[in-house]
Simulated scan of single mutants.
Amino acid sequence: MEEGIHQIIGQFLRFGQLILVPVCGLIFIAGIVLFFYAFKNPIRKRKAYLFSIFGGIGFLFFTYIPVVLFYFVFQKPKTPKEGQGIATIVDGFAPVNFHIYDFMIQLAEPFILFLFYVGVFFWLLSAKNPQIKRMGMGLVVGSPVLWLLVQHAMDIYKFFV
């Protein structure tokens, strides 16, 4: 009986994560994007602030609370055996990490190019609006810097580790 209840609660938490983690992540990203268009409008700034704060908190909450509940309420945390620890787990996932990194680069490069073109569009079409002109300049200048960071992220990581 108790095992069935644990399965139902586990499925409910899994279903909640499948829905609420992406929704809260999108709300967080929408809040960040709204900051770009808020300028001096206090209503838009407040909306962007609330979206970014509560979206980020919701994302982290719905990501980690089920894990904490599962390990500390439903079953006791497992102690590592002799010779096992976080280092062996991380080393075991090393081949998978490079595939994920390559996939992320394949997604990031077209997005950075799109941001560059959006920056050129804003910069050239903002005739007398200095805020939009500055935003376009920032995108045009920031896109190559972001591209260099994406290209050398693994080297930067290996330098510090």
Score class of each variant (00 low, 15 high):
Gly16Lys: 10
Ile100Met: 14
Gly10Asp: 13
Ser143Phe: 03
Gln75Asp: 11
Phe54Asp: 08
Arg134Met: 12
Asp155Ala: 13
Val118Ser: 05
Val118Trp: 12
Phe15Lys: 10
Phe159Ile: 09
Pro80Asp: 10
Cys24Ser: 15
Leu146Gln: 13
His6Tyr: 13
Gly119Glu: 03
Ile8Leu: 15
Tyr157Arg: 15
Ala87Cys: 00
Gly136Ile: 03
Pro80Ala: 10
Val145Gly: 07
Cys24Met: 15
His6Ile: 12
Phe70Trp: 12
Phe61Arg: 06
Phe114Arg: 01
Phe36Gln: 14
Trp123Glu: 01
Ile8Pro: 00
Ile86Pro: 04
Phe98Lys: 07
Leu13Asn: 05
Ile27Pro: 04
Trp123Gly: 00
Leu125Val: 01
Arg134Tyr: 08
Pro66Asn: 01
Tyr49Arg: 14
Leu26Met: 14
Leu13Pro: 01
Gly85Ile: 05
Gly31Arg: 05
Gly55Leu: 04
Ile105Arg: 09
Leu146Ala: 15
Ala30Leu: 13
Gly10Tyr: 04
Phe70Tyr: 09
Leu26Ser: 09
Gly56Thr: 02
Gln17Lys: 09
Ile29Lys: 01
Ile112Trp: 02
Gly16Ile: 03
Ala48Val: 08
Leu125Ser: 02
Phe15Leu: 11
Phe121Val: 00
Leu69Gln: 05
Phe114Asp: 02
Lys158Thr: 08
Ile105Val: 07
Ala87Arg: 06
Ser143Met: 11
Lys47Glu: 05
Glu109Thr: 09
Ile112Thr: 03
Glu3Asp: 15
Met104Pro: 00
Lys158Pro: 00
Leu60Asp: 09
Arg14Gly: 02
Val145Ser: 06
Leu113Cys: 11
Gln7His: 15
Ile9Gly: 03
Gly85His: 08
Gln7Leu: 14
Phe114Ser: 09
Val118Lys: 11
Phe93Pro: 07
Phe103Val: 06
Phe160Ser: 08
Ile57Met: 10
